[in-house]
């Protein structure tokens, strides 16, 4: 299966690991990420308003590209996934936004109404490849490793649009952890916000959030948490000190398990 891949700005810079390990793992598992040429930054956060159209266009362009190539659009970054999937939903169901966005896109010869299916890398692992296959492909089982999933907010919410998993008690990452041979640690704070971009507003806010999250993970038995979001990764890592919990991208751990992790 070949996917139109939207890496996003951070995966080209600070989160190169998330991208590189993801690509290698995909190769090992037999699916192909075909990077969308000239993709533009998704904006990082979904515009929660009805009247801003231009900020949605980078998503629409990527979506229309995937549609033209008859491919599903895949992302690895939670934020890109959230923005693009919500914009896709707007294009399919919000008449005002769809009409105005299409007016903009006319000059580029694009007409788009939400036809593309947007999937996250994790969904491909679960639904296309299947965790049984992932398990078979594991070369270095992470035996005895106690890993907590950290979902954050963007992968799952709003659940009626994201529709990836039970937003309040998800299992898509836990099941991956299991497939990799490790023990998933369930902790309630795994879908509570890390503080996100407020790190630029007041560092104390994410610090408090992260302490709550990682302490919860720790006391439930986690030695490590894994995430799909570069901003979560940053906030968690920055304030992990003293909690004794390691923070990693899910793709890094996956590449490790699949035996394709080389030094970047």
């Amino acid at each position: 299966m070949v996917y139109s891949y939207f890496p996003g700005c951070t995966l080209k810079n600070k989160a190169k690991d998330l991208d590189a390990y993801g690509r290698r793992s995909a190769e090992a598992l037999g699916f192909t990420l075909e990077e969308i040429p000239e993709w533009q930054c998704c904006g990082g956060v979904y515009p929660m308003n009805k009247d801003e159209i231009a900020v949605r266009l980078s998503s629409v362009r990527a979506l229309a590209y995937a549609k033209d190539h008859d491919q599903e659009l895949i992302t690895m970054c939670s934020a890109c996934h959230n923005v693009i999937k919500q914009v896709n939903n707007d294009m399919a169901h919000d008449e005002y936004i769809s009409e105005h966005a299409n007016n903009y896109m006319k000059s580029e010869g694009v007409e788009y109404h939400g036809e593309t299916k947007v999937v996250h890398y994790l969904e491909v692992l679960r639904d296309e490849i299947g965790y049984d296959k992932v398990k078979e492909a594991v070369r270095n089982p992470l035996k005895g490793k106690k890993i907590g999933a950290y979902y954050g907010c963007l992968l799952l919410r709003p659940s009626d649009v994201m529709a990836m998993d039970n937003a309040e008690n998800p299992s898509i990452i836990e099941d991956l952890i299991k497939a990799m041979g490790a023990d998933p640690i369930v902790y309630a704070q795994r879908n509570e916000c890390c503080g996100g971009y407020l790190t630029l507003e007041d560092k104390a806010i994410p610090e408090k959030r992260v302490k709550t999250i990682l302490q919860n993970a720790k006391e439930q038995g986690a030695e490590m948490v894994i995430t799909a979001c570069p901003l979560c990764y940053y906030n968690l890592k920055k304030h992990a000190e003293g909690t004794g919990v390691e923070v990693k991208y899910f793709t890094e751990v996956l590449a490790d398990a699949l035996g394709v992790k080389e030094e970047n």
């Binding site: 600070k14 989160a15 930054c41 990082g44 956060v45 996100g196 971009y197 940053y234």
Partner: peptide
């Protein structure tokens, strides 16, 4: 506000919000 690890995503998001 910059620090060496700050992801682009944080800046982009904050810009969008603020």
């Amino acid at each position: 506000l910059l620090d060496p690890d700050l992801p682009q995503q944080a800046l982009v998001s904050a810009y969008r919000k603020f």
